[in-house]
């Protein structure tokens, strides 16, 4: 995303008196990090940022941390900043009635991609001391203690952004900035999924085992996911029924990720948060992307586009044949 900080602050200042709070981002502990930020008072607005480091999908907080269903007593709405991918999560939450459309004021931010901190660390000579990170056109400029590096933006943005189909928010009350051209057509093949599918069956198993073996079960992927809404009732942690034991072996790690993926079948909006937050670098979203591709092919459905639609695995059609 290009830097929209000023435009965002201007807009929020104008409407803040009508809002209960605004979910946005603020700078993190260093120039490569960003923190979700709850704007609660007028003076907080100047801490807001919106740029290529606005990673987090803020709709996560709507369903899990606050009441976004009942209308507010004083009629004030919750403001939420969304990128294209985040807006799809919001639509999915509206579909499932975790968020009421009337309760939120959606500030849409067209996005050309968010950065992947790991890729940047691999690109710059002195990743330990980064002073500033800025996108300038199609270039990314990173200043470290050892000088300035410039490279193509595409080398530093997240995997999900390279295959982005919806850079522009699908729902919004206001759009800040001009719409962006999508990188991929809606029916284009997912290149990452294709790379895994090119392997033989045995190699695919080895690939996934090798990836999932690193899992430390911190549940960051689950907790960052806007659509993992079961919260403290997740079957990962119940002893009855006991889907998962305390063993840290391959069977349990594999099973955990199958649970996560299958519970998101037809619901995942590919915001990529699970993959970004993984502390051990497992391409978690890659599992869900395949399920999405299957559902698109089989049922011609894309999650998080139409607020009126019902997720396909929560409904049926008697007319279907061939399955």
């Amino acid at each position: 995303m290009d830097d929209k900080t000023n435009a965002l602050r201007e807009h929020v200042k104008g409407i803040f008196s009508n809002l209960e709070l605004v979910l946005g981002w603020e700078p993190g502990y260093d120039p490569l990090h960003t923190r979700p930020f709850y704007v609660r008072t007028e003076s907080d607005i100047d801490r807001l940022t919106a740029n290529c480091l606005s990673f987090q999908n803020l709709t996560r907080y709507l369903a899990k941390s606050m009441n976004a269903v009942d209308p507010a007593a004083d009629g004030r709405k919750i403001g939420v900043c969304v990128k294209g991918c985040d807006s799809r999560s919001l639509v999915a939450l509206i579909q499932e009635k975790f968020v009421s459309r009337d309760r939120v004021y959606v500030i849409g931010l067209p996005c050309r991609g968010t950065l992947d901190a790991r890729r940047i660390r691999a690109l710059v000579p002195d990743p330990a001391r980064i002073r500033s990170v800025n996108a300038e056109g199609d270039e990314l400029v990173v200043e470290t203690d050892r000088g300035i590096s410039r490279f193509a933006l595409d080398r530093a943005i997240a995997r999900k952004c390279l295959q982005c189909r919806y850079p522009n928010p699908v729902i919004h009350d206001v759009l800040i900035g001009d719409p962006v051209t999508p990188r991929l057509k809606i029916d284009a093949e997912n290149p990452s999924v294709a790379a895994v599918e090119a392997l033989s069956l045995e190699d695919r198993l080895l690939f996934w085992e090798n990836q999932l073996d690193r899992c430390i079960r911190c549940f960051a992927c689950r907790n960052a996911c806007p659509l993992c809404v079961c919260q403290n009732h997740c079957i990962m942690e119940t002893r009855m029924p006991k889907w998962i034991t305390q063993y840290r072996n391959m069977n349990e790690k594999f099973m955990f990720h199958m649970i996560h993926a299958l519970h998101l079948a037809g619901r995942c909006t590919e915001c990529g948060e699970c993959e970004r937050v993984c502390p051990v670098g497992i391409p978690v979203a890659l599992i869900k992307e395949k399920i999405n591709a299957i559902i698109y092919e089989m049922l011609d459905y894309e999650s998080g586009i139409d607020p009126e639609a019902v997720p396909p695995l929560l409904t049926f059609s008697p007319k279907e044949t061939g399955i």
Partner: peptide
């Protein structure tokens, strides 16, 4: 407020020693 209550901080921490017995 931003915390998502995952366990990353405790899992990566060299001094967090809490455990569960099952």
């Amino acid at each position: 407020s931003p915390c998502i209550t995952c366990g990353v901080c405790t899992w990566v921490c060299p001094t967090c020693y809490c455990f569960s017995i099952t």
